[in-house]
Design a protein around this nucleic acid. Structure first.
Lengths: 180, 180
DNA sequence: CCTACCGATCGGTAGG
DNA sequence: CCTACCGATCGGTAGG
């Protein structure tokens, strides 16, 4: 708290005139992070297309949030456990709501045949987020891979991992409008 | 330190007759974790076979260490950054040595045609460890998935993610002894 | 291995 | 928003 106060040019104790305590600040940062991810999913899912199409856009949006709002994203993903129980439950609910949208796309993909019938959406989403969220630990925006490149690589990697290329595809293409 | 001492039936301060400080203990736990992973790779790579064969055994061994030696594994993977610079460098070197053995298998797979030619071993190993190491955060050994099942699922997932099934395979099988 | 401490740090409060 | 504090916790030390 002293550190945060100093960054605003005042003492740590002075912050308590504006917030009830440390966890109120944490809740706010976490909610902001949740908002970024949620809005990203809104955009990614607005346009429809096959499940792999939508997954690809979800991955791109997710990676963008991780890169462009790294602090809030990291706090949303990693720090919820330090919240008092009631607030922690709310944070977990936000994350679960976001993840459920990914799982729904996986279910759609299984139904339309663009994803393997034996894919478990719950496990698939856990493993996907495992891979993507670890970006926070190693990605360096000033490094050789730009945000766009890494997003593309991760989209390919994620679809391959879920078996998007190898599905039976007995109905694949049904959702896609006829192209030349 | 008080907590650790109490677990041994003595005071925190008494520990300083046996260790020089907190970071000495951390170094020891990290080295133990590194040892588990290193021995696991020894076993996994002892038998040869195609790159996907060896990767599958590496994944199984890695998951076993994560499950059977969760505390040491977690400490090795997550806590090295809290070490003083010199010790931290040693810990990072241990991890890099282990990861280099995975990268070598990926290089072999590219050479033999069992893995895609455009696979980047460095990126491939980062993404693989991202997925596997996240187990620590969510896997519950008392849950529905047993250690063996989860290891199998993760091996399949990893090979698919690396494109093991979709490689050009112009040389695939060259390493495999002739079978019926 | 214990007694008795130290200095630093932390979230937070009373009272103005 | 500051002054002046509190109680708790932490890694660690001196001296026996």
């Amino acid at each position: 708290m002293r550190e945060l106060g100093n960054e605003l040019g005042l003492l740590g104790s002075s912050l308590y005139s504006h917030v009830s305590g440390k966890s109120e600040l944490l809740v706010e940062v976490i909610a902001r992070g949740a908002g970024f991810f949620s809005e990203s999913a809104d955009v990614a899912l607005a346009d429809g297309g096959t499940a792999p199409d939508r997954l690809r856009r979800l991955v791109r949006g997710h990676v963008e949030v991780l890169v462009d709002h790294a602090a809030e994203a990291r706090t949303f993903l990693d720090e919820a456990r330090y919240l008092p129980p009631a607030d922690r439950r709310r944070a977990v609910a936000m994350r679960d709501e976001y993840e459920s949208r990914w799982r729904q796309v996986m279910v759609d993909g299984i139904d339309e045949g663009s994803l393997p019938a034996d894919l478990d959406p719950r496990l698939g989403s856990i493993l996907t987020f495992s891979t993507l969220n670890a970006l926070i630990r190693w990605y360096d925006p000033t490094g050789p891979l730009g945000p766009d490149e890494i997003a593309g690589v991760l989209a390919d990697h994620t679809l391959a991992a879920l078996g998007a290329g190898t599905a039976t595809a007995h109905l694949a293409g049904a959702e896609t409008s006829q192209k030349t």
